[in-house]
Simulated assay, not measured.
Amino acid sequence: MTRKSSFAPVVAPETRVLVLGSLPGERSLAEGRYYAHPQNRFWRLVGDVIGQDLEALAYAARLQSLLHAGIGLWDTVASATRKGSLDAAIREAEHNPLADLVATLPELRAVAFNGATSARIGRALLADSPLALLPLPSSSPAYAAMPYAGKLRLWRAIGEFLV
């Protein structure tokens, strides 16, 4: 099984909220972009939080809109072996140096975890951080236990750290 690696972080000095996934899925890795699977609700959720239709934008414009809103992206897992895209299949994980990245972001106020695996790993790596740590329901289509409206209600917590 081949090792899969996360992408580079998407951040700026003005980043106020860092959203962390676990490890990009197969579709994202194939396309070289965050949250590429068309059924993943990440872009819709974050767009609704910041009041912008991110799904209608090209990928580069989506990233620029996030940065302009004060939102950065990265993953908790630097690399791992995994068959398919499910977090439960992650093996031999090496974690990203989250504390090192956080230390370079002077305006950062919160870290939001996209899903339970990201939250479990990220909370351990940032246990000594004074930042708000926000566990959020996964935007993945694999997490269908909660309807979109329920996910959005919880994802809106990001908004209070952007103002």
Rank of each mutant, 00 (worst) to 15 (best):
R82Q: 14
G32R: 12
L131M: 05
S65F: 00
L54S: 01
V102R: 09
G47Q: 01
G84P: 04
K151F: 02
E94N: 11
R120G: 12
A12E: 13
A12R: 10
A12D: 12
E160P: 01
V10C: 07
A124P: 03
P137T: 09
H37S: 09
H37C: 05
A149G: 07
L152P: 10
G21P: 08
A110E: 08
S85F: 09
V102F: 05
L29S: 07
D128Y: 08
G47K: 01
A144L: 05
K83M: 06
D87W: 02
E14H: 14
V49K: 02
R120H: 12
P141V: 03
R62I: 06
A12C: 06
T2K: 13
P141G: 01
V19R: 00
L98K: 10
I90P: 04
A56C: 05
T81G: 09
L45S: 02
R153K: 13
Y34G: 02
S129T: 14
T15R: 07
T81V: 11
S140Q: 02
L18G: 13
P97D: 11
P13T: 01
E92Q: 15
R91A: 15
Y143T: 11
R33S: 06
L29M: 11
W74E: 03
P38Q: 15
Q64Y: 02
M146C: 07
S85N: 07
D48T: 04
P24F: 05
P97N: 11
L18F: 03
L101Q: 04
A112D: 03
I121R: 04
R16T: 00
P135A: 08
Y148S: 04
V11H: 10
L45A: 05
R16Y: 00
R120A: 15
R156P: 12
